[in-house]
């Protein structure tokens, strides 16, 4: 266990202020504020969660809906800041939270590869080098030169996965994306994920598919309503989770 710590999550809590009805306008804000009706309900998504992920590990997050898994991933990828505690990441992160974010439907597949790639933080040189590989993997062929509003949802998902998975990042954050496309493409994408994980990348993995977690992860954490229920060896945690 002397490998470098890539992600260090230290006593992280996340609290959202939820006003009972979402006030968005200045007038309402002032009138409600003056009449004392401005109340915030606090919603705690995560409470004092701590864990470390070392280099090359595949770390799983499990838990039922609303357990705080996605919040955790967003905190780690820097989209949100924790209310309490600190998160330290050493290395470049590629978040695969929701594929195809930032696609513009009026642009062609080719243009979207570059746009989406740029958003994910790839360099121009890298994208130009890997362009053919991305197109090949997505199996889009001629369609790559058409605006993506003409694509089917399967084609979109394939394009998105191909762009997102072309890199070899130091930290990869995956939120249930292995169910993309048809059976053949699913097999292919799984093979690519396995290859990435094998090549020393640190992976943070969220799934509801316990078998997948068992198969891919070394260690995992079980979150339950924002609290750490259990942390440790993946198969052990998974057995407990299934039993509960």
């Amino acid at each position: 266990m002397s490998r470098k710590v890539m992600i260090e999550v230290d006593n992280v809590s996340m609290t959202f202020k939820m006003n009972t009805d979402k006030i968005m306008s200045l007038k309402e804000y002032v009138t409600k504020g003056l009449s004392g009706k401005l109340k915030f309900d606090k919603f705690t998504a995560l409470t004092d969660v701590s864990f470390q992920v070392r280099k090359g590990e595949t770390f799983g997050l499990i838990g039922c809906n609303g357990a705080g898994k996605s919040t955790m991933l967003k905190l780690i990828s820097g989209i949100m800041k924790p209310t309490k505690g600190t998160i330290r990441c050493n290395g470049s992160i590629v978040p695969m939270l929701e594929l195809g974010s930032g696609f513009d439907f009026d642009l062609t597949g080719r243009e979207n590869i570059f746009l989406n790639g740029a958003i994910l933080g790839y360099s121009k040189k890298y994208l130009t080098e890997k362009y053919d590989e991305i197109v090949d993997f997505s199996e889009l062929g001629e369609f790559i030169n058409y605006p993506i509003r003409t694509y089917s949802s399967g084609m979109l998902a394939r394009l998105a996965f191909s762009v997102a998975s072309v890199v070899e990042p130091e930290i990869l954050i995956v939120d249930e994306i292995l169910s993309v496309g048809d059976a053949a493409f699913q097999k292919k994408s799984r093979a690519r994920m396995m290859k990435m994980m094998g090549s020393g990348t640190t992976v943070l993995f969220v799934s509801h598919d316990i078998n997948q977690i068992r198969e891919m992860c070394g260690r995992c954490i079980w979150l339950d309503h924002g609290h750490t229920k259990m942390i440790g060896d993946a198969s052990e945690v998974c057995s407990c989770y299934v039993r509960s």
Binding site: D104, D106, L107, E111, F114, L115, A118, G121, K124
Partner: peptide, 21 residues
């Protein structure tokens, strides 16, 4: 250095979609 390419891409998108069609 880091975000130059992203800025290029986003500007290009604004421009391409503005007068598209």
């Amino acid at each position: 250095k880091k975000y130059r390419f992203l800025i290029d891409q986003l500007v290009a998108r604004d421009f391409k979609t503005k007068y598209k069609r």
